[in-house]
Structure formats: structure tokens, C-alpha cells
Deep mutational scan, measured.
Amino acid sequence: NRRVIAMPSVRKWAREKGVDIRLVQGTGKNGRVLKEDIDAFLAG
């Protein structure tokens, strides 16, 4: 159960899209999950 680094707005975006943010690979600094990462995860 790893800790995910993400801005609150990104966490909210993931929740709205029904995405478990822990499954998303972050591409930002220090592995931070970005809004673009959520979109890419949804795109496959």
C-alpha cells in the first residue's frame, strides 16, 4: 500500500473519473501523479 504523491485537485479528478489513483504511474517530480497521468491511464 504505497503512498501516492498527488495534488488534491488531481485526487479529486481521479475520484470523478472512477480511477484508483494507486494504480496510476506518476510521471511528475518524485513520481507525482499528474492530471495527464490520469487521462493517459484512462486512455489505456
Rank of each mutant, 00 (worst) to 15 (best):
N1D: 13
N1F: 08
N1R: 12
N1A: 11
N1T: 15
N1Q: 13
N1H: 14
R2L: 12
R2N: 11
R2P: 10
R2S: 11
R2M: 10
R2E: 08
R2Y: 08
R2H: 13
R3M: 09
R3T: 11
R3C: 15
R3V: 14
R3S: 09
R3I: 13
R3W: 08
V4S: 05
V4K: 07
V4M: 05
V4H: 05
V4C: 06
V4E: 04
V4R: 06
V4T: 07
I5Y: 10
I5T: 08
I5W: 08
I5H: 09
I5V: 13
I5Q: 08
I5K: 10
I5E: 07
I5R: 11
I5A: 06
I5S: 07
I5M: 09
A6M: 04
A6T: 05
A6V: 05
A6I: 07
A6R: 03
A6E: 03
A6H: 04
A6P: 03
A6Y: 04
M7R: 15
M7G: 15
M7H: 15
M7L: 15
M7D: 15
M7W: 15
M7Q: 14
M7P: 08
M7T: 15
P8L: 12
P8K: 15
P8M: 11
P8I: 10
P8G: 09
P8Y: 10
P8V: 09
P8W: 12
P8C: 15
P8F: 08
S9G: 10
S9Y: 13
S9Q: 10
S9K: 11
S9F: 10
S9V: 08
S9N: 11
S9E: 11
S9L: 08
V10L: 04
V10S: 03
V10M: 03
V10P: 01
V10G: 02
V10F: 02
V10T: 05
V10E: 04
V10A: 05
V10D: 03
V10H: 01
R11V: 07
R11H: 09
R11N: 03
R11M: 08
R11W: 15
R11D: 03
R11K: 09
R11F: 13
R11E: 05
R11T: 05
R11S: 04
K12R: 14
K12N: 08
K12G: 05
K12D: 08
K12V: 06
K12S: 08
K12E: 08
K12C: 14
K12W: 11
K12M: 09
W13V: 09
W13N: 05
W13M: 13
W13K: 07
W13Q: 07
W13A: 09
W13P: 03
W13G: 04
W13S: 06
A14Y: 03
A14I: 01
A14L: 03
A14Q: 01
A14V: 02
A14F: 03
R15H: 12
R15V: 13
R15I: 14
R15C: 15
R15W: 14
R15P: 03
R15G: 06
R15F: 12
R15Q: 13
E16N: 09
E16R: 12
E16K: 14
E16L: 15
E16H: 10
E16G: 06
E16Y: 13
E16D: 12
E16W: 11
E16M: 14
K17A: 09
K17Y: 06
K17N: 15
K17H: 15
K17G: 03
K17P: 01
K17L: 14
K17W: 11
K17R: 13
K17C: 15
K17Q: 13
K17T: 08
K17S: 09
G18N: 10
G18A: 06
G18P: 01
G18W: 05
G18E: 06
G18Q: 07
G18S: 06
G18V: 03
G18M: 08
V19P: 00
V19R: 02
V19G: 01
V19M: 03
V19W: 02
V19L: 05
V19D: 00
V19N: 00
V19Y: 02
V19E: 02
V19I: 10
V19A: 04
V19S: 01
D20I: 04
D20P: 06
D20R: 04
D20M: 04
D20F: 04
D20Y: 04
D20T: 04
D20H: 04
D20K: 04
I21K: 01
I21Q: 00
I21G: 01
I21Y: 04
I21S: 01
I21C: 00
I21F: 04
R22S: 10
R22D: 06
R22T: 11
R22E: 08
R22H: 09
R22N: 12
R22P: 00
R22C: 13
R22G: 08
L23G: 06
L23H: 10
L23V: 10
L23K: 13
L23S: 09
L23D: 09
L23F: 11
L23I: 10
L23A: 10
L23R: 12
L23T: 08
L23W: 10
V24N: 00
V24F: 02
V24Q: 01
V24D: 00
V24A: 03
V24G: 00
V24S: 00
V24M: 04
V24R: 01
V24T: 02
Q25I: 14
Q25W: 14
Q25M: 14
Q25P: 13
Q25G: 07
Q25V: 14
Q25Y: 14
Q25N: 13
Q25H: 14
Q25D: 10
G26E: 00
G26I: 02
G26Y: 02
G26Q: 02
G26W: 03
G26D: 00
G26K: 01
G26S: 04
G26T: 03
G26F: 02
G26H: 03
T27F: 03
T27Y: 03
T27S: 13
T27E: 00
T27N: 05
T27H: 06
T27I: 02
T27M: 04
T27G: 04
G28M: 01
G28D: 03
G28P: 00
G28S: 03
G28Y: 00
G28W: 01
K29H: 12
K29W: 12
K29T: 10
K29Y: 12
K29A: 13
K29C: 10
K29D: 09
K29M: 12
N30M: 11
N30G: 14
N30H: 13
N30R: 12
N30C: 13
N30A: 10
N30S: 09
G31P: 02
G31A: 05
G31N: 08
G31C: 07
G31I: 01
G31L: 04
G31E: 05
R32T: 07
R32P: 00
R32N: 05
R32H: 07
R32W: 08
R32D: 05
R32M: 13
R32F: 06
R32I: 07
R32L: 08
R32S: 09
R32A: 12
V33M: 03
V33N: 02
V33A: 02
V33G: 00
V33Q: 02
V33Y: 00
V33I: 15
V33F: 00
V33T: 05
V33R: 01
V33K: 03
L34Q: 07
L34E: 07
L34N: 06
L34F: 07
L34A: 04
L34R: 09
L34W: 04
L34P: 00
L34Y: 07
L34M: 09
K35N: 04
K35G: 03
K35D: 03
K35I: 09
K35F: 08
K35V: 07
K35L: 09
K35Y: 06
K35S: 05
E36M: 13
E36N: 10
E36R: 15
E36P: 07
E36D: 11
E36Q: 14
E36I: 13
E36V: 13
E36T: 13
E36H: 13
D37A: 00
D37S: 02
D37Q: 00
D37W: 05
D37C: 02
D37Y: 01
D37I: 03
D37V: 02
D37F: 02
D37L: 02
D37G: 00
D37M: 02
I38Q: 00
I38L: 05
I38T: 00
I38N: 01
I38G: 01
I38W: 01
I38A: 01
I38Y: 00
I38R: 00
I38P: 00
I38H: 01
I38C: 03
I38M: 02
D39H: 06
D39F: 07
D39E: 10
D39V: 10
D39S: 08
A40F: 10
A40K: 13
A40H: 12
A40T: 12
A40V: 10
A40E: 10
A40M: 11
A40I: 08
A40D: 11
A40G: 08
A40Y: 09
F41V: 07
F41H: 08
F41M: 06
F41Q: 04
F41Y: 15
F41N: 03
F41R: 04
F41P: 02
L42V: 14
L42H: 07
L42A: 11
L42Q: 07
L42M: 10
L42T: 07
L42D: 05
L42E: 05
L42G: 05
A43H: 11
A43V: 13
A43N: 12
A43D: 11
A43Y: 11
A43R: 14
A43F: 11
A43E: 12
G44I: 14
G44L: 15
G44Q: 15
G44R: 15
G44K: 15
G44W: 15
G44V: 15
G44H: 14
